[in-house]
Design a protein around this nucleic acid. Sequence first.
DNA 1: GACTGAACAATAATCAATTATTGTTTATTT
DNA 2: AAATAAACAATAATTGATTATTGTTCAGTC
Lengths: 199, 199
Amino acid sequence: MPEPDLQFKSLDYSDPMVARILDAAEQCIHRFGIRRTSMGEVARVGKLSRGSIYRHFGDKRSLIEGVFRRRQQVFLDSAEASLEKESSLVDKLTRSVVLGRRDMREGLFASLAETEPETVAMMFLDPRFYQRSVSFWPPHIRLAQAQGEIRADLDEATIVDFIVRLAVSLVMFPHMGVALKTPREIQAYLQQIISRGLG
Amino acid sequence: MPEPDLQFKSLDYSDPMVARILDAAEQCIHRFGIRRTSMGEVARVGKLSRGSIYRHFGDKRSLIEGVFRRRQQVFLDSAEASLEKESSLVDKLTRSVVLGRRDMREGLFASLAETEPETVAMMFLDPRFYQRSVSFWPPHIRLAQAQGEIRADLDEATIVDFIVRLAVSLVMFPHMGVALKTPREIQAYLQQIISRGLG
DNA sequence: GACTGAACAATAATCAATTATTGTTTATTT
DNA sequence: AAATAAACAATAATTGATTATTGTTCAGTC
């Protein structure tokens, strides 16, 4: 994969045409998987021309990325709203793990895991997949520091790094020696680890 | 994948025939990848009959698993020896991450990542891949507890779970907000996280 | 008893021809 | 200016026929 497409970075999700294309593409991927989704089919489902798709997305790869980025943005927005109801960082992290697991089980990824499991696996192991998640946490961490929940003498980037690692690990592997299935189990585990480490 | 093959569990690596088959299979996988390695080719490379392979390993899948289990055993034995030279749990963990990363870069996985990257990805996301690692850590953790490095009031399984998650995460993702490339960087990060957590 | 090599049926993989898709361009329409 | 539909060359995917591989069995050898 080459460098990120700058055009793509400024994608306007509120543009009706863009939204229409992404909706159609998402429908197709949901049903057929990525490989078997053709630009022609996206055009048919979206009731627009193939040329229009190419005008808004340079190629198929860019369209696919657009779908997943939007999906992720929707997930993070929803997580943001959900986390507003949690008062501590541990609870927020717990919630985000629960939401992340549900997303893997019920959304586009679940469909794709059926049609193209190796594609999903490759995605999960691509560090770029987590970039957005990394930038999601700083405000929550600063708040926890301001509230005295976590210490303020530790580098913020280190904290973010650790939090995201925990979240990713718990979503990918519900069991790595200890079964962490229910929100309560996850919360208890995280409470122990985060508040004191092992020392 | 069905249940683990019990016959397989008691595989005798010291049996010359078994070793010969595994050596040949490993050579072939190294060169051709899993998919393109045929039992016939393994027989040719190992200078034995196909029938003999089937006598020791029920089918191709079992042979492939045998190769990877042995590989992992060799890695863990080597890691064990290497960790003897480290005095603290943090240093041991650091070392294991360094060794793990090297293994991914230089060994059978590196070859396989070239011929069948999606196979490697699927492997990494299979929880069974980490079972052996999980059972590797208890003695080291008990020692660290006995030495007072880590607290003794935390459930051992929880500690193991956490340690393995950290190791796996650091091997898979060298960067998740903070670049953790050199042993020193890794060690410093782990020291902070493990000794105090975030509290 | 363990290994070998051959044979066989079922299944998977490969191959070459054919078809579909991608990306691009153009002319037309809105 | 943006969208459409059509055409085209290059490339990728599909298809059905062919070949290879898998798993199994058997007879022979050491």
